[in-house]
Amino acid sequence: MRKIVILISGRGSNMRAIVQAAKEQQWPAEIVAVISNKADASGLEYAASMGIATVVVASRDFTSREAFDAVLQQEIDRFAPDLVVLAGFMRILTTPFVTHYSGRMLNIHPSLLPSFTGLATHRQALTAGVRIHGTTVHFVTPELDHGPIIAQAAVPVLPGDTEQSLAERVLVQEHVIYPKAVRWFVEGKLTLEGDLVHIGAESTESAGIACVG
């Protein structure tokens, strides 16, 4: 039975999607803890209601990223997870922290990487005038938003789209592909070969989920 720790900063909608999928699909895994860097993160209440241990490591209590990451790592490692999942965790992590969980930490980013890294991705997409936008699940590496890609989902950018309407359309697909990617990991279907991820006998070239039109 694989053990999963999920990190959140707010409502944790992707965390909820993962928890629900794990329960409904009876994954060979247990979500052992949900940890937040904000005490008022509403996702903590949901996790507790599902019988999942919750922990707060308040980032505002630390004067440096290094100090925060050191304590966060200690809290995560108390649960001895096989996988750490970033689900709306709004922190830039230090290289030693990321290296500690190399090959066993996932993130979801609201763009089709490598396009539109960082923040305000939907604004970036609208400003660039792209016709296709989306979301990416990837392994976390020290370079921000550049880890090996596991899965992607694409959505159309429609005439009259706002940041909010585009974000809502992308979020629907996040809730589809993130649980799928986490399940692949816990079932032992993901293999890293350099910067490429293979799913079973197939590479991520066939793992994307196109949702256009």
Rank of each mutant, 00 (worst) to 15 (best):
R2W: 04
K3T: 14
V5A: 06
S9R: 01
R11N: 00
G12M: 08
R16S: 10
I18G: 03
A22D: 12
Q25P: 01
Q26L: 06
W27K: 11
P28N: 13
I31L: 12
V34G: 10
S36R: 12
K38F: 15
K38C: 11
D40C: 11
D40S: 14
S42K: 15
S42Y: 11
G43D: 15
S49N: 14
T54N: 06
T54L: 12
V55W: 11
V57I: 15
S59G: 10
S59M: 14
S59P: 04
R60I: 10
T63A: 15
R65M: 11
R65G: 15
A67Q: 09
F68G: 06
V71P: 00
V71C: 07
L72R: 07
Q74P: 03
D77M: 13
R78G: 09
R78E: 13
A80M: 07
P81Y: 09
L83S: 12
L83E: 09
V85N: 10
V85C: 14
G88D: 09
G88T: 12
M90G: 04
I92F: 02
I92K: 03
T95V: 02
P96W: 13
F97E: 09
T99Y: 05
H100I: 13
R104L: 10
M105A: 14
L106F: 05
I108L: 07
F116P: 08
Q124E: 14
Q124C: 13
Q124Y: 09
L126S: 09
G129T: 12
V130Q: 07
G134M: 07
V140A: 05
T141G: 02
L144W: 01
L144I: 11
G147Q: 03
I150M: 00
A151V: 12
Q152F: 00
A153Y: 02
V155S: 00
L158R: 02
L158S: 01
P159N: 06
P159H: 11
P159S: 11
G160L: 02
A167F: 06
E168T: 03
R169S: 01
V172A: 06
E174G: 03
I177W: 04
K180P: 01
W184F: 05
W184L: 07
G188M: 07
L190A: 02
T191F: 00
T191K: 05
D195Q: 10
L196Q: 03
L196P: 00
H198F: 08
I199A: 03
A201C: 01
E202A: 04
E205L: 13
S206L: 08
S206D: 03
S206V: 14
A207F: 08
G208A: 13
C211K: 03
V212I: 05
